[in-house]
């Protein structure tokens, strides 16, 4: 179970980077994932540079394979980020979708 306090602290930061546009600096597609992400695999992860130059990592969702390229424009959205146990607090966080 992920610490609810860690989720709570994290969510305050997440709020600041939602709904922001940016460009993909580099990407990869994860096929062999850790426990918390197993059910989402395979999934792409991107490193995005936002318009304000801040760099953020996140999964890329609602994509086509042609979207997986350096320079692709994306926007940050809210999604569930890891699967916790049935009893734990739900972790919401930032992912990206292609524009």
């Amino acid at each position: 179970m992920i610490s609810p306090i860690k989720i709570w602290r994290r969510q305050k930061e997440i709020r600041k980077i939602l709904g922001k546009k940016g460009k993909v600096l580099v990407w990869t597609k994860i096929y062999m994932a850790g426990s918390d992400f197993k059910k989402y695999a395979p999934y792409p992860v991107v490193l995005v540079e936002l318009e304000n130059k801040e760099k953020i990592y996140g999964q890329l969702v609602d994509y086509r394979d042609t979207d997986l390229k350096i320079g692709k424009e994306v926007i940050s959205i809210l999604r569930k980020v890891r699967s916790s146990t049935d009893e734990g607090v739900i972790a919401y966080g930032v992912k990206f979708k292609p524009l």
Partner: peptide, 29 residues
């Protein structure tokens, strides 16, 4: 393997782990 991959992710930052980036994912980038 999932437990070990998760353990190895401890070499990465919290944000990298949260984004589902495994250690392999970082070198893949």
């Amino acid at each position: 393997p999932e437990e070990t991959i998760t353990g190895l992710s401890a070499a990465a930052s919290g944000e990298e782990q949260e984004a589902g980036l495994t250690f392999s994912g970082l070198y893949a980038m």
